[in-house]
């Protein structure tokens, strides 16, 4: 039997919002370590790899590893029935053909449960090679969302140029062109507002803004986002999920293949 109880139910709601527009269906791979999900979008240009660690749950029982095939649009609709301050419990029998969600109000005066059919999905998992990235940019997640939204006014691609001075985002199109330069933050008094560029060597890559704007749906999960880049390697965009003490409860990682000038 699999059963996981999440006191901060809003976390699962936000996770669903961060993937439902990019993926149609995916499997939650549940094991003793936690709940993982890895899936590519239908065009195989972007991949989501997310994990909710077992110690982020108030209680977590996983008798044996199981894979729960889910239609994400349906799961997202059911999770919309949960209030932000609800406690969410997910349950599935080992030989399950259905998954149950239970939402409890904080005062336990309102308990709802929803059962959803599971799907048989062949979980084709890609191997993501461990990469020593040439550049890692850490910045406020709201800032990145703003850049992606603003530049998509100009064109459908963004050129991200990372040097030791900082990072520049550029876009051009029929309307004209635009550049947004972020300098490395000097005084890092408030960690989460800082822009930190860790550069081994300069990198310039081009990416689709359409996909980046899907990725920024994860911004409510984390005040910071990191962009990891190397020449001719997919971009990794990571939103870490930490608790109030800053301990890791998991992450949402997006990978995006670059666009190549030909």
């Amino acid at each position: 039997m699999f059963e996981a109880r999440l006191v901060e139910g809003s976390l699962l709601k936000k996770v669903m919002e961060s993937i439902k527009d990019l993926l149609n269906e995916a499997s939650w791979d549940c094991s003793g370590n936690g709940m993982c999900l890895q899936a590519m979008d239908s065009s195989h240009v972007a991949l989501v790899s997310l994990m909710l660690k077992s110690d982020g749950f108030e209680n977590y029982r996983c008798d044996r590893s199981i894979s729960l095939g889910i239609n994400l649009a349906s799961m997202s609709k059911i999770l919309k029935c949960a209030s932000n301050d609800d406690i969410i419990t997910i349950r599935a029998e080992d030989d399950a053909d259905a998954i149950t969600f239970m939402f409890e109000s904080p005062k336990q005066d309102r308990v709802s449960d929803y059962e959803m059919k599971l799907m048989n999905l062949d979980t084709e998992h890609l191997g993501i090679p461990d990469t020593e990235y040439a550049c890692v940019i850490k910045m406020p997640s709201g800032e990145f969302s703003r850049i992606c939204r603003d530049l998509s006014v100009l064109g459908d691609s963004v050129i991200i140029c990372c040097t030791k001075d900082g990072v520049r985002f550029s876009a051009k199109g029929d309307l004209g062109n635009g550049n947004i330069k972020l300098a490395q933050s000097a005084n890092v008094d408030k960690e989460e507002e800082a822009v930190v560029v860790d550069m081994r060597e300069a990198v310039t890559l081009t990416f689709s803004l359409r996909y980046l704007n899907f990725f920024t749906k994860a911004a409510p999960l984390s005040s910071q986002v990191s962009l990891s880049m190397s020449e001719d390697v997919p971009l990794m965009v990571e939103y870490k999920i930490n608790d109030k003490e800053g301990d890791s409860k998991g992450y949402v990682r997006y990978y995006l293949a670059p666009k190549i000038e030909d």
Binding site: H44, V45, A46, L47, L126, G127, I128, K259, I260, D262
Partner: peptide, 14 residues
């Protein structure tokens, strides 16, 4: 024009 690559060009099928 920019050609959009696919992830399978970079990640390996298990």
């Amino acid at each position: 024009i920019n050609y959009q690559n696919k992830l399978v060009d970079y990640f390996f099928d298990r």
